[in-house]
Design a binder for these strands. Structure first.
Length: 277
DNA sequence: AGTGTCGCCTGAATGC
DNA sequence: TGCATTCAGGCGACAC
C-alpha cells in the first residue's frame, strides 16, 4: 500500500542510516521477489559507499559513489526496519535483504507478499532507464502542472480513477490517494480522463499535490516518534476522507449522503456520488 | 498505441 | 475450533 508519501517517509528514515556510509555486509535471505534479486548483489554492494538516496514516484534509489544504483520498491507489503548498532537483530520472517553499514546499523527489507523489488541499475544514468524513463513528472516537483496533466489526459477514454493509477500519466499516486484526490477535487471517478475541462484538471492537480503533501506531513510526525519496538517504516495511520469509508457520511460538505464503494478495473474506488460530479 | 484483464503472493478477515 | 475461501493491491504480461 505504500504510495508516494509513505515511500518518502521511508526515504527520510533511511537517509541518516545509509548516506555516506560503507556497506560492510549485505545478506540476502530470499531472492525470489517479483524481480529476482541478482546473484551477485552481495559482492557488488559490499565495501561500497552510499552517496545519495533519492525517491522517484514510489521508487527509492540508492546511489553509490562508484556509479552503481540500487532500486528499491516496497510493492504492496514491503517495509524497511532499522536496527541501531546497539540493538540485537534476529532475523524475522520475510526479512529478505539485510544491509549492515560500518557502524553496525542494519537496514532490513521485509516484504511478506514479495511484490517488492530490490535490484541493481546503472546509477549514473538512472533517469534514462526503465521504469524511470517512462514516468510522468514528480507530482510535487516543478514539472507537474494542470497543463501537463491536461496534456497527459488528452484523448484518453479511460476513467479518471484508472488514469491516476497509471504511472505514465501521474506518478506516485496509488489507490488510496487517487480516491482522496478525486474526492477533494469533487470529480467523479467514472469520468473519462480526456473529458475533464481545464478548470477541473487544475482542481485535480491542486488536490493531488495537496493530498500528498498533507500525507507526508502526517508521516513526518510519526517518524519523529519513531521507536524500535515496532520499528517499521513504510506505513503510518492517516485519516482518510473516503478511502475505506464505505457507508460513512460524506463529511467534507453538507450533501448528507454516504460514501459508496465501486470496483473499477478490479480496484476498489470510494467516492461520494453527490459531491463528485 | 490505448485499453482491459489477469496473476503474482501472503496474511487478515470472513464464512461454514 | 478449525479449515476453506475471499480480499487487498502495484505492476508487468498479455490479448484485443
Amino acid at each position: 500500500m505504500p504510495e508516494l508519501p509513505e515511500v518518502e517517509i521511508v526515504r527520510l528514515g533511511i537517509v541518516p542510516a545509509l548516506e555516506g556510509k560503507v556497506l560492510s555486509n549485505v545478506t540476502v535471505h530470499r531472492r525470489d521477489l517479483r524481480i529476482p534479486i541478482p546473484e551477485d548483489l552481495e559482492e557488488r554492494l559490499e565495501g561500497k559507499i552510499v552517496e545519495q538516496i533519492l525517491r522517484r514516484g514510489k521508487y527509492i534509489l540508492i546511489l553509490l559513489k562508484n556509479g552503481q544504483g540500487v532500486v528499491l520498491h516496497l510493492g504492496m507489503s514491503g517495509r524497511i526496519l532499522i536496527y541501531s548498532s546497539g540493538d540485537s537483530y534476529e532475523r524475522a520472517k520475510h526479512d529478505h535483504v539485510v544491509l549492515t553499514v560500518a557502524d553496525g546499523t542494519r537496514v532490513v527489507f521485509n516484504d511478506p507478499r514479495r511484490f517488492g523489488m530490490f535490484y541493481l541499475i546503472d546509477g549514473d544514468n538512472w533517469q534514462t532507464q526503465k521504469p524511470f524513463s517512462e514516468m510522468a513528472p514528480e507530482p510535487l516537483g516543478n514539472g507537474f502542472s494542470g497543463l501537463v496533466l491536461k496534456e497527459n489526459f488528452s484523448g484518453r477514454k479511460i476513467n479518471i480513477k484508472a488514469a491516476l493509477l497509471d504511472q505514465h500519466i501521474v506518478t506516485g499516486v496509488g489507490n488510496i490517494y487517487a480516491c482522496e484526490a478525486l474526492y477533494d477535487a469533487k470529480i467523479s471517478p467514472m469520468r473519462a480522463a480526456g473529458d475533464l475541462n481545464d478548470e477541473e484538471v487544475e482542481r485535480l492537480c491542486v488536490a493531488i499535490r495537496d493530498v500528498l503533501t498533507r500525507a507526508i506531513k502526517a508521516g513526518g510526525s510519526s517518524l519523529k516518534d519513531y521507536q524500535h519496538t515496532d520499528g517499521s517504516l513504510g506505513y503510518f495511520q492517516h485519516a482518510f476522507s473516503v478511502y475505506d469509508q464505505e457507508g460513512n457520511k460524506c463529511k467534507a460538505c453538507d450533501c448528507d449522503s454516504a460514501v459508496q464503494r465501486i470496483v473499477q478495473g478490479g480496484r476498489s474506488t470510494f467516492y461520494c456520488s453527490r459531491r463528485q460530479i
